[in-house]
Amino acid sequence: MVYKIRDKETGKVYEVTIDEETNEITVYDVKTGKPVKTVNMTIEELKEAGYEVEPV
């Protein structure tokens, strides 16, 4: 599923895909559409880390 996340401190917005089964999150560069990095976190962990998470 695709989400937009926003860093509450910097205001930067990222587009991510989240595999609900493995909790693998792939972060994409919004301008190029290319993957930047992959992390292993849940949506709740993202929120605790200071991100706003919205489904696209």
Rank of each mutant, 00 (worst) to 15 (best):
K34Q: 11
I18R: 05
I25P: 00
K47V: 12
K34Y: 10
A49W: 12
E24H: 10
E44Q: 11
D7G: 01
E21Y: 12
E52Y: 07
V13W: 13
I5C: 07
R6E: 05
K37Y: 15
D19C: 11
K8T: 08
M41H: 04
E45W: 05
E15G: 08
D19E: 05
K4C: 13
K4R: 15
N40L: 12
V16D: 00
G50K: 04
P35K: 10
D29V: 02
T10L: 02
T32H: 04
D29R: 01
I5W: 03
K31H: 15
P35E: 08
V2Q: 11
V16E: 00
E24V: 14
T42W: 00
I43L: 13
T17C: 08
K8A: 05
E52C: 06
I18V: 13
V30C: 15
K47P: 02
V2Y: 14
P35T: 07
N23F: 07
Y28W: 14
R6T: 14
P55A: 13
T10Q: 01
D7L: 02
E54T: 09
K37I: 14
E48Q: 14
A49D: 06
K47M: 13
Y14M: 04
T17P: 00
E48P: 02
E48F: 09
L46K: 00
D19L: 05
Y51V: 03
N23S: 10
R6K: 12
E54N: 08
Y51D: 01
E24P: 02
I5P: 00
D29M: 02
Y28C: 08
I5Q: 00
R6L: 09
Y28K: 06
T26D: 01
E44Y: 07
V36M: 10
M1R: 14
Y51H: 03
N40H: 14
I25D: 00
A49I: 08
Y14W: 12
T26M: 05
M41G: 13
E15D: 13
Y51G: 01
K8G: 04
E44A: 12
K34R: 09
V53G: 02
I18G: 00
I18P: 00
M1Y: 11
L46W: 04
N23G: 14
T22A: 10
I5A: 04
K31C: 15
Y3N: 02
N23W: 07
E21C: 14
E21R: 11
K8H: 06
E52W: 06
V56E: 07
V39H: 05
T10V: 01
V56Y: 10
K8E: 03
E45K: 07
G50I: 05
V27K: 01
I25F: 04
T22L: 11
G11V: 00
L46E: 00
V16Y: 04
V27Y: 14
N23R: 09
A49G: 07
P35A: 09
T10E: 01
E15N: 15
K31T: 14
V27C: 15
V13N: 04
T26A: 03
E48A: 11
E9N: 13
V16I: 14
M41L: 08
G33I: 01
T26S: 05
T42N: 07
Y14D: 00
L46R: 00
E20G: 09
E15Q: 14
T32D: 07
Y3H: 05
K12L: 12
T26H: 08
D19S: 08
E15S: 11
G50L: 04
Y28E: 01
M1F: 12
R6W: 13
V39Y: 14
E54H: 09
V16W: 04
E48M: 13
G11T: 01
I25E: 00
G50N: 06
L46N: 00
D7M: 02
K31W: 14
V36A: 05
T10H: 03
V16A: 15
D29A: 02
T17E: 06
N23P: 03
E52S: 07
M1K: 15
T17H: 13
V30P: 15
V36I: 15
T22I: 07
D7P: 00
I43P: 02
K31Y: 14
T42K: 05
K37V: 13
V30E: 15
I43Y: 05
T22P: 01
E48K: 12
V2N: 11
V27W: 15
E9Q: 13
P55Q: 11
V53R: 02
I18C: 06
E15M: 15
T32Q: 03
A49T: 08
T42V: 01
A49C: 15
M1S: 10
P35R: 08
V39E: 04
L46F: 09
E45I: 05
T22V: 06
E48N: 12
K37G: 12
T38K: 10
V36Q: 05
T42E: 01
G50E: 02
E45M: 09
E15C: 15
Y51I: 03
K4F: 12
V53C: 07
T17Q: 09
E24G: 05
A49V: 07
E48R: 10
V16G: 07
V13K: 03
E52F: 07
K12E: 13
K12S: 09
T38F: 10
K4M: 11
D29E: 06
Y3F: 11
I25H: 01
E15A: 11
N40D: 04
P35Q: 07
N40M: 12
M41F: 09
V36P: 01
G11K: 03
E21T: 12
T26G: 01
E15Y: 15
V27R: 01
T17V: 12
Y51R: 01
M1L: 13
K12C: 15
T26R: 07
I43R: 04
I5D: 00
I5K: 00
E52V: 08
E45R: 06
E9G: 09
V13T: 09
V53K: 02
P35L: 11
K4L: 14
N23M: 08
K31G: 13
Y28D: 00
P55V: 12
V13F: 08
I5H: 00
G11I: 00
E9L: 15
Y51T: 01
V13L: 08
D19M: 05
V36G: 04
T38G: 05
T38Q: 07
K37S: 08
